[in-house]
Design a protein around this nucleic acid. Sequence first.
DNA 1: CTCAAATGTAGGCGTTGTCTACATGTTGCG
DNA 2: CGCAACATGTAGACAACGCCTACATTTGAG
Lengths: 206, 206
Amino acid sequence: MTTAARSDAKPYHHGALRASLLARAAEVVAEQGLEALTLRGLARDLGVSHGAPNRHFRTREDLLAALAEEAATQACEATLSAMAEVGDDPWVRLNAMGRGYLKWALENRPLFRVFTHPDVSRFADESLVARMQELDSLVAETVRETQATGRHPHVHPELLNLYTTAVPWGIAMIVDHPGYEASRLNMDIDEAVAQLIELVVPIAGR
Amino acid sequence: MTTAARSDAKPYHHGALRASLLARAAEVVAEQGLEALTLRGLARDLGVSHGAPNRHFRTREDLLAALAEEAATQACEATLSAMAEVGDDPWVRLNAMGRGYLKWALENRPLFRVFTHPDVSRFADESLVARMQELDSLVAETVRETQATGRHPHVHPELLNLYTTAVPWGIAMIVDHPGYEASRLNMDIDEAVAQLIELVVPIAGR
DNA sequence: CTCAAATGTAGGCGTTGTCTACATGTTGCG
DNA sequence: CGCAACATGTAGACAACGCCTACATTTGAG
């Protein structure tokens, strides 16, 4: 189908090739899986030569790392901004973080799928890993505070932390997995997210 | 014990190439990721020619499907046999299924990683999908029974089911993810699994 | 024993990632 | 303005890969 710019003469330079590569890459991963993502395929889709992507991503792994970076940035931002909107009660804060993270994951499935993909996060660079660990530490600290105020006091702290973080992660993964019928979740997304997180960090009486 | 079972001279036939391919493939996926899995690489590792794997798996996807099949079979078996060891109380049954599944996942991480891998389960054939859906139905039915006897009665049934299944899945995914320090979980695995599942389906007083 | 089926080998074709040399726009600076 | 450095895209090469076909060797049923 040769999607090249049919109208006028195609300019020598694409203009925004790096951003276009990232956008198209997220689409391809979401639609056909990570294995279907090829630099040459992206180049074809965007109407440039097969070597052009090399100017922006020296290797395929560099492209994946950039995708993961973008996704992780958004996920952190969603989690932290949700936290910033509530007060100091650790239960309420933890609940808000869970809702913010899960809602972002459900509303940005292509990007979520990218950065949870085991073969993408493997290529994450240092700055990304550091940022994710910062978020993990914040969550772990908040989990500790909830436990100190009576949440499952008899459970090993690391296990409680694992359980708490596993729920948004697992839910998003399952809903995102091929084979899950999205029709099962044709309810209001905010209500669904609230009900789900309430199971993990109940804040009904607060 | 065939004529040239083992000796200095390499026999013309490998003898158990199909099983060896699957075993080595699970190792490679676990150690280097799915992208590092190549048919030619497996052939080299096993000392056969690059075309030999083609006799057993016509395409690379066929190999992945066989891997997923093996993993799903084991996961189902672990879940169902755990369920068979307890009585009829749906809470106890659901708890046992969760423990059986999670324990299997934690003790068979390479295989678990294979069949939860988004680009592997994509290649699952019909029989595998059918078997997995059978297990899902059984879990969903048990979740419904627990809810009918007082477990989170005000939550949307599909959401409760999602939450319940997400926990073992998410925990195993997180522990399995690159970057998680396994040292955090240097406790008895049965005790850890029991504490985790108890958070989801408490059976303390039963 | 005979011979067909099963299994492994060898080579070829097209695609991919990535390197290098070259071409073409863009920009900073006198 | 002119022009040199730079950024970006093109084109060709190479090795590795999946997968196909032709051929070689072993196994096993009759």
